[in-house]
Design a protein around this nucleic acid. Structure first.
Lengths: 149, 149
DNA sequence: CTTATTCCTATTAAATTAATAGGATTTAAT
DNA sequence: ATTAAATCCTATTAATTTAATAGGAATAAG
């Protein structure tokens, strides 16, 4: 029942980008340093984040990554889904394409997993990156970066 | 964000036991057959379930396993925790012994994970085995076993 | 032209999960 | 007593997923 590092690192990465969004394209190298995540691994996380339309890349020197949308229009749920796939405590109740199960007819544990899925989704969708930025500012002051998230 | 088969198979196993609780000790062999789970694997699942005081074993011929408590006093949450450990979408917000994190001070993503943890726990703790038995009877009638759960 | 960067693909390492195997122990039934 | 049915125990292996690394190609600023 754990999130993998994809989701955790990825959320930290986009939050880092939200906190630094007025600095122009942000290099993975700088995120990697601030967040203590390997640059190569961050690279892999950017692929699904780009595909999901959450970040954009700027190639070449002075390039880097920027958020594709305003932080208040990006929910934690979007980020997590982009990185970990549809929310699904078990495959048969996946948000996307629930896996067919021969036992489905009359399955009574499934209703438990459905409720778990919905409650997770509700929480994740209730937070935007902007919420986290605001929260972060409480600790670090208006203009300082938030390294430890 | 997936449950492992430990939790899924284990819940099916104890529910199977709840549905057959008037039959005396239930052999792993019979659960394995009804549920399509390898007997050896079930054996491994019984260890933590016993330790958690949810099932009792009866050794020797005609032995097997029985629930240690009434189904209405066993929650899905207890079963899942016994098999998967404390609920913790990330280690730093584990129900039991949250892992210390150097970034904890001023960590803003943590409040998200805490809410996720609590919402999962709330759902899992809201269902008892008896609830699932009742639900199951709706499909199969009062006295028939529920094979497909 | 050089440098800094993303991009792309492949590979490896590590960890976890799932399953299997083989035998020791216990106990009911004969 | 003997047998058979079952749990118990430990170790091993197989499979899968996660995490990280490596090496270079493409792009664009200066």
């Amino acid at each position: 029942m754990k999130l993998s590092t994809k989701g955790r690192y990825g959320l930290r990465a986009v939050l880092d980008m939200a906190l630094n969004k007025n600095e122009g394209p942000i290099t993975l190298n700088s995120i990697a340093e601030r967040q203590g995540i390997s640059e190569g691994y961050l690279e892999q996380l950017m692929v699904p984040l780009k595909r999901a339309g959450l970040v954009k890349s700027v190639r070449g020197a002075q390039g880097g990554y920027i958020l594709a949308k305003d932080p208040k229009n990006i929910t934690v749920g979007e980020v997590i889904r982009a990185l970990e796939g549809p929310i699904a405590p078990v495959a048969c109740v996946s948000e996307d394409y629930p896996e067919e199960c021969e036992r489905a007819e009359g399955c009574v544990t499934r209703m438990v997993w459905e409720k778990v899925r919905d409650s997770i989704a509700e929480v994740l969708d209730s937070f935007t990156l902007e919420d986290l930025v605001q929260e972060s500012r409480k600790y670090t002051g208006q203009n300082s970066y938030m390294y430890y998230i």
